[in-house]
Design a binder for these strands. Structure first.
Lengths: 214, 214
DNA sequence: GTACGTATACTCGTGTACGAGTACTTGCCG
DNA sequence: CGGCAAGTACTCGTACACGAGTATACGTAC
């Protein structure tokens, strides 16, 4: 499949808000923030204007005149083109359907965790769990308050998703810590030995040699 | 806390491999790939050389001479500096401890899912679940094979993490689909009405007006 | 009426990711 | 032994993210 012309999900959000009615960039940012979308989509002014220009260059939006509020600077209103409407639905459908390989920083950290001594690593993982439990609790309260105010859950699914995935991660880490502590995670002995002596266990070196043969 | 000088986790991986012994960039890429780190850390030649140059500029690594293999081009070996060693441990510790706000594309898609008609959205989510179940199953087999070959689980935790988080996401989506289907997800009626009439339900418009007052 | 803080609206220089390319060597197969 | 494909080693031009800044208007408080 051909690559998409746009890559930043902020572009998708811009298309979605313009689809409702023509808008100018600053207003789009305000609207996305008032809907608390900044938690799921990065919203920076620099990126926003770059994205708007790129959407226009690709024919997904077009200038639909200017307006002004009092004696403030004029601002350009953008409206959605037919191509833009199609791109919005097509790209959104693709993102809903196709899992994308992301590279979370925690996953990168896990892949290098052997660099840290075992006890140190476990202490840090415990701190992560505690910090994340606190964040999860406070976000659940905030979410409950927003639902209390009448916002339908349909508009909060991404926040629920984020929260539940963080909770799932913490469950996973607790299980990992348990297996590290009771030694059932294979490799714990070698890990300790490596940090005690500075030498990788012989069987690790042999494994590495084998893998580089592939 | 001051911002880090490096931002790309690939830099962390470079530091970790150079810490074992001095290496040249192309070899670092080969080594990371032989260890299957490309699943958790993006490895592109262009990025790699940029990251190596940046690490050198910040004093985390330094050129430690050149070598050549036959009549191939000479290549520069890099070794870790004391600052680099400290940065490796400090940055890795931070990534293990501190949850980072990421913006997965699926979360962005969820935040705009109302743009799609409900039945269409549900069908797409079902396809995602199916595709991801298949990926999870095939990755579990691959993981089992790698462990069968003797690689300790310590070197596979990031793959286990990735798999288990994908499985957790699928469980979450199945639950969401259930609540969408039985109507217990608040907002389903309004969502259907919106796509049937093209008009947002009155109570949604009133809510939005309130929220923009904040 | 003035001062000042906040809002509105946007820009630009810098840093960086990276894809596709370059140049040459080596090894394998016919 | 020669041709060719793959490997080795790296580069560069382009695209874009974005932080911190700019300029001006407006509203509030004294």
């Amino acid at each position: 499949m051909a690559k998409r012309k746009m890559s930043n999900p902020l572009a998708l959000a811009v298309l979605a808000t313009i689809r409702e009615q023509p808008r100018h960039p600053y207003e789009i940012a305000q609207l996305l923030r008032s809907r608390h979308k900044e938690h799921s989509i990065k919203i920076n002014y620099g990126s926003l204007y770059t994205v708007v220009q790129s959407l226009e260059r690709h024919g997904f939006i077009e200038a639909a005149g200017t307006e002004r509020d009092g004696r403030r600077p004029e601002r350009t209103l953008y409206s959605l083109t037919e191509a833009g409407s199609a791109e919005l639905v097509d790209w959104l459908s693709e993102l809903v359907t196709e899992p994308v390989k992301e590279h979370p920083r925690f996953e990168a950290a896990l892949s290098l965790i052997g660099v840290l001594p075992p006890d140190e690593a476990m202490a840090l993982l415990e701190r992560r769990v505690v910090a994340q439990d606190a964040w999860i609790a406070s976000q659940r309260e905030e979410l409950a308050a927003v639902m209390e105010s009448g916002v339908p859950r349909l508009f909060l699914v991404e926040s629920e998703y984020s929260l539940d995935m963080r909770a799932a991660e913490n469950d996973w880490i607790r299980q990992l810590l348990k297996e590290m502590a009771d030694g059932s995670l294979q490799g714990m002995d070698g890990w300790r030995q490596y940090h005690a002596t500075g030498e990788a266990p012989r069987e690790w070196q042999e494994l590495e040699a084998e893998r580089q043969q592939d």
